[in-house]
Design a protein around this nucleic acid. Sequence first.
DNA 1: CCTACCGATCGGTAGG
DNA 2: CCTACCGATCGGTAGG
Lengths: 190, 190
Amino acid sequence: MTRKEEIRSIALRLMKTHGFGGLTMRLLAKELGIEAASIYNHISSKDELLETVCFDLASKFESAVLEVNDIYFNAPEKLSMLVKQHIEILCADLNASTVFMHEWRYLKEEPRLDFVSKRNHYEQEIRKIIQLGIDEGHFNEVETKFAALTLLSALNSVVEWYKPTGTLTPLQVAQQLNQFVLTGLSKQKI
Amino acid sequence: MTRKEEIRSIALRLMKTHGFGGLTMRLLAKELGIEAASIYNHISSKDELLETVCFDLASKFESAVLEVNDIYFNAPEKLSMLVKQHIEILCADLNASTVFMHEWRYLKEEPRLDFVSKRNHYEQEIRKIIQLGIDEGHFNEVETKFAALTLLSALNSVVEWYKPTGTLTPLQVAQQLNQFVLTGLSKQKI
DNA sequence: CCTACCGATCGGTAGG
DNA sequence: CCTACCGATCGGTAGG
């Protein structure tokens, strides 16, 4: 791990706990064992830290949906693979994922608009998969916007409660989510 | 509306946009058309604004679950009424609800611990309802912790996308969520 | 990576 | 509700 990566990793941990605004360069420096001014030999600004994590993760989600659409053809398969990949990306670095979820709105205007647009694109791809499932006759005739947003919020909330030290692997979480999203709570169809 | 209520309402709108840390007394004063120092004739501190909204809403959720448990007896009924009340509480003041969701972690230690404990209690009550549904034979044998957290995240994400000016009423949103949570996406049982 | 420092801004108080 | 102000702290720079 380079010094720069070490700085990013510690910054993410602190941002997760204190929020972007609550991460001060002096606090970060203290955790690194150096002076605040020295941080600027490795990164150019506090904003850069946030931009890096937000766009790194956004690009992972983009790749995942591209791959899923390339490989699988029917909607239930596409959806279950995307859920799996989504959860694996989130769980690969929970500090990064939590910051991605909570702090993106503190991006400066230009990167923020770019970020929101990438996020909307991902949401659209999920809507398309759901619509495909309806057209195929696999899914109920739900509103795709509502369904996509509800699905995404269920997936993303994993960062709030998942503990790598617990009993569930990311794959098992993905399977439970898939089951829940596909079949719901009720034993009989209503 | 008293001056104090007006201050709270404007503070919530600003907190929603800028976050708790990004709400400055000078910005709030500007929106009120007074000087920053004058705010302190109406409230005692910035923290008070956050505590008020967090605990006001927490107490509404607590009342809702008490009422639902008092009136209804089987789990599907309890759950659907709680979803309805939950969404109505959220949509009654979207600024307050958004701040409640995102900014509670900036509460000072003592109120924060209190808040988290109230939140856990609400979560436990939802787990009990789900467990009841399993025992009754109405619900699938899911892990109640996982199901409660996933359900709650789906409900709470309504604050991110609900627009009072749109076509859906809060009641209709609640009905869609109920349907989604109970029957899932899939047409046939898997 | 450090010392020394800058201008800006913060929440809040004193006194009227 | 205002003027005047406080000590603390912020992100970041200059120069070594």
